[in-house]
């Protein structure tokens, strides 16, 4: 009896959560995929009707804007957060005084919810209330900074707020990475008279490749599922200039009674996430098998 229990205990303990995940994650992914092939409107219908929802989706100018925004936002957000995070981490790594305090200051935005970040930046960027009016008040009458109300530039304000929020977190990741580099190699290079800049570009940064990958994965999924930041900062506006796939899906499902559209956009979002995550998982699993 006790032998049997010992043998099966892990399965028994893991069973309920495994079943719950199968049903509530993968089950509902399958349900959403099914709905995306139907003509569901207000309520779900289950008669398969081909790719009609996907045709409608890719004919919709609003979805086009949402997808373009995802790539602009995702690319800039990940790139700038990584560069900024790395630069701050390297500066903090110079054995400076009050490093602990500085690290906390840079990391602090991560403690805020994205709703708070979005609302604060909405006010900062509002031309009549924030930055523009302050600088005009200092006497620079021609200064304009109205990106948040300009449909061509509004998406970049989302990038600004997102970078402000995430770069501190990336810095913490990189700082941990910098500290884990073998100091013996660095010292050997210093003895050989290699300049500091070369030590970073040729030794330290290349040895941090796994950290880059982790940072990329974390930032990429943050970018793809980004929703609250846009809602708080611009509400998707001006017009729908800052719509992202997640806000598009929400509008279709909950405001417009168009569940089929919402399901098909959700499936496309999932495919984009898979495109990022699957290669990562694949390389991780392959490495393990090799060892």
């Amino acid at each position: 009896m006790s032998n049997w229990l010992e043998k099966h205990l892990p399965k028994i303990v893991l069973g309920p959560s495994f079943l719950a995940i199968i049903l509530f994650v993968y089950g509902f992914i399958a349900w959403t995929a099914w709905i995306s092939f139907t003509r569901s409107r207000l309520m779900p219908k289950y008669d398969i009707d081909g790719f009609i929802q996907y045709q409608r989706l890719f004919d919709s100018p609003r979805w086009e804007v949402a997808i373009d925004n995802l790539f602009i936002f995702g690319f800039l957000f990940i790139l700038i957060s990584m560069i900024l995070g790395l630069v701050i981490a390297i500066f903090l790594d110079q054995k400076i005084r009050i490093e602990g305090a500085l690290r906390t200051i840079y990391l602090y935005p991560m403690a805020l919810s994205l709703i708070v970040t979005g609302t604060a930046w909405k006010w900062i960027l509002n031309p009549g209330l924030g930055l523009e009016s302050v600088i005009k008040g200092w006497g620079f009458k021609d200064f304009t900074f109205d990106w948040v109300i300009n449909p061509d530039f509004a998406i970049y304000t989302v990038v600004i707020a997102g970078v402000w929020q995430a770069s501190g977190f990336v810095m913490a990741l990189f700082l941990a990475g910098l500290r884990s580099v073998d100091q013996e190699i660095v010292k050997a290079a210093q003895v050989d008279g290699v300049p500091t800049f070369r030590i970073y570009t040729a030794i330290i940064i290349p040895s941090m490749a796994p950290i880059f990958l982790s940072a990329f994965i974390v930032l990429a999924h943050l970018a793809i599922k980004s929703f609250d930041l846009v809602i708080a900062l611009t509400g998707g506006g001006p017009g729908y200039a800052t719509d992202l796939p997640a806000t598009y899906m929400y509008t279709m499902a909950f405001s417009r009674g168009d569940i089929g559209q919402a399901a098909s956009s959700a499936i496309i979002m999932m495919i984009v996430v898979f495109a990022v995550v699957v290669p990562y998982l694949y390389s991780e699993l392959r490495n393990k098998n090799d060892q």
Binding site: P151, G237, P238, G239, Y240, S255, R256, G257, D258, Q261
Partner: peptide, 19 residues
Amino acid sequence: LRGAQAGAITDTVTAHFNS
């Protein structure tokens, strides 16, 4: 109009007004 159609018009109106 129903939600999807009214929404389609509003999308156009707001896109035009803000560009």
